[in-house]
């Protein structure tokens, strides 16, 4: 028993030390959705989606999410159109940085899906960079199949879960 509590304390300390991490999905915190949580922008600071200078405009009016075909990381014409607008916005608002999150649907093994999500995030990053966004402002991360946004086990949900989300953060690029 003693041993177990020691382990807890240790892990707790490590977790605290890392509390300013970009992980807006820290276990259970937040769930899927738009910006918010540790690394994103708090819901209150998103602003008005009709104001073209607001993060809410980027997130909701342009759209922060693009979708992928099964097992693919190639950008569809729709995805390219959305990302072109994302790039324009990012180029106009150089104080924002972003983390591109790649996700996979549940029809794959855990580790492969992590790699597949990384491929998707990287496709988005490369497209944005090609549109003039500085690579230093964009990080990528993959959640594999760990954070679905739609919960059913049918293609209608899988299609929503095969996605990459560009999550804005305030602050200069590192």
């Amino acid at each position: 028993m003693q041993k177990i509590s020691t382990i807890f304390l240790l892990v707790g300390a490590l977790a605290l030390a890392a509390c300013n991490n970009p992980n807006r999905y820290g276990n259970g915190a937040g769930g899927a959705g738009g910006a918010g949580g540790a690394g994103g922008i708090g819901a209150g600071a998103l602003g008005d989606p009709s104001n073209p200078n607001s993060p809410a405009y980027f997130q909701q009016t342009i759209g922060d999410t693009v979708h992928f075909v099964v097992d693919q990381s190639t950008l569809t014409p729709e995805a390219q159109a959305t990302l072109t607008q994302q790039a324009t916005w990012l180029n106009k608002h150089p104080t924002y940085t972003a983390i591109v999150e790649g996700h996979a649907d549940e029809q794959g093994t855990r580790e492969y899906n992590l790699a597949l999500g990384a491929r998707r995030a990287s496709s988005v990053q490369q497209f944005l960079v090609a549109q003039g966004v500085s690579a230093a402002r964009l990080k990528t991360v993959s959640y594999g199949k760990e954070r679905p946004i739609a919960l059913c086990s049918e293609e209608s949900c899988f299609a929503q879960n095969r996605r990459a989300v560009t999550v804005l953060s305030a602050g200069a690029g590192s």
Partner: peptide, 13 residues
């Protein structure tokens, strides 16, 4: 059963 980590971040495999 005993737990080795808390629930503050996702752990896998």
């Amino acid at each position: 059963v005993s737990f080795l980590t808390d629930a503050s971040s996702i752990v896998l495999a």
